[in-house]
C-alpha cells in the first residue's frame, strides 16, 4: 500500500507504542524476579538471585509443577484421541448434524470460562456426586483441549486431501496399513503441534481449574493465585511467573514453527 509520509509515521509510531505496551509488563515481571525488594517497589533497589534459589527449593511450588505437568499430559492424551477422531469424522464424512458437532467442539472454549467452570462444577458435585480432584480436573481440561488438536488435524486433512490414501488402497493396502504408512506420517506434525498447544493451554488454565480442582489438588496457576495475595511471597511468585512464561512460550513457538514450515 502506498502511504503518505505522515500516515506512515503514525502507523510505525502506533506499532512501536503497542509493542512497548505488550512487552513492558513482561519485562517488569522478569526484572522483579531478581529484585531485592519484597514488595516489588519500582525501580528495584538492587538485584539478587536469592528468590530463584528459594523458588526451586520450595516444596509447595515444586509439587504444584508436578501436578500441572501430570494434568496437562493426561488432558493432552484425551484431546489427541478425541480431537483426531473428530477431525477424521468431520473431514471424511457428510452426516446429519455435522455443523452442530463442529459447534460442539468449539463451545467449551468459546463460552466464557466461568460458565464452563460452574457448569462442570455443578455437574460433578450435585448431579454425579463426584468428589472434586484429579479426575474432575483432567476431565475438564480434556474437554476444552479437544479443540486445539481438532483444529490442527482438520486443517492438515483438508490440505493433504485423500488422493494418497486412495492410491494406497488401490494398491491393495488395508485400512490399518494405509493409516500407519500413509495417513499417519502426513498428520504427524499436526498432531504434535496440536498436542503442544493443548499442553500449553492446560498448563496455563486457571478459571475452569478453580471450579474443578477442589481443595486437594493444586496446579501451578492455583499456587500462584493463592500466593499472590500473601505478603512476602511476591518475589517467589515473580520467579514462578517467569518460569511459566518460558514453559508456555517454548511449546507454542515450536508448534508455530512446525505448522508454518509445513505451509511453505
Amino acid at each position: 500500500m502506498r502511504l503518505s509520509l505522515p500516515s506512515k509515521i503514525l502507523l510505525w509510531g502506533a506499532t512501536a507504542l503497542t509493542l512497548a505496551f505488550i512487552y513492558t509488563p513482561i519485562l517488569v515481571v522478569v526484572l522483579n524476579s531478581f529484585s531485592t525488594s519484597k514488595t516489588l517497589s519500582w525501580p528495584p533497589p538492587g538485584f539478587t538471585t536469592e528468590w530463584w534459589a528459594k523458588a526451586f527449593s520450595n516444596a509447595g511450588a515444586m509439587s504444584a509443577v508436578t501436578t500441572s505437568l501430570i494434568v496437562a499430559l493426561a488432558s493432552t492424551v484425551i484431546a489427541l484421541l478425541l480431537g483426531t477422531a473428530l477431525s477424521f469424522a468431520l473431514h471424511r464424512f457428510d452426516f446429519f448434524g455435522k455443523s452442530t458437532v463442529n459447534l460442539l467442539v468449539v463451545l467449551p472454549i468459546a463460552l466464557p470460562g466461568i460458565v464452563t467452570g460452574i457448569a462442570l462444577n455443578n455437574a460433578f458435585r450435585t448431579m454425579l456426586d463426584i468428589q472434586l480432584g484429579w479426575f474432575t480436573i483432567i476431565v475438564a481440561h480434556g474437554t476444552f483441549c479437544v479443540v486445539t488438536v481438532f483444529n490442527n488435524v482438520f486443517a492438515r486433512l483438508r490440505r493433504v486431501g485423500t488422493s494418497l490414501e486412495e492410491a494406497s488402497s488401490d494398491l491393495g493396502a488395508g485400512i490399518w496399513t494405509t493409516f500407519r504408512l500413509v495417513t499417519f506420517p502426513q498428520i504427524r506434525s499436526a498432531l504434535f503441534a496440536g498436542g503442544l498447544l493443548s499442553f500449553a493451554l492446560s498448563f496455563d488454565e486457571i478459571i475452569v481449574t478453580t471450579f474443578t480442582a477442589g481443595s486437594g489438588v493444586q496446579t501451578l496457576p492455583i499456587y500462584i493465585l493463592e500466593n499472590m495475595f500473601r505478603p512476602n511471597q511476591a518475589p517467589i511468585v515473580a520467579v514462578i511467573a517467569v518460569v511459566m512464561i518460558l514453559i508456555a512460550i517454548v511449546p507454542i513457538y515450536i508448534a508455530q514453527r512446525l505448522t508454518s514450515s509445513d505451509n511453505r
Binding site: 509488563p25 496455563d204 515473580a238
Partner: peptide, 16 residues
C-alpha cells in the same frame, strides 16, 4: 509469542 504467555502471569504483571 508474549501474548500467548500465561494468562495468570500477565494479570500478575499488571498487579505489580
Amino acid at each position: 509469542l508474549p501474548l500467548w504467555a500465561s494468562y495468570l502471569v500477565k494479570a500478575y504483571a499488571w498487579r505489580s
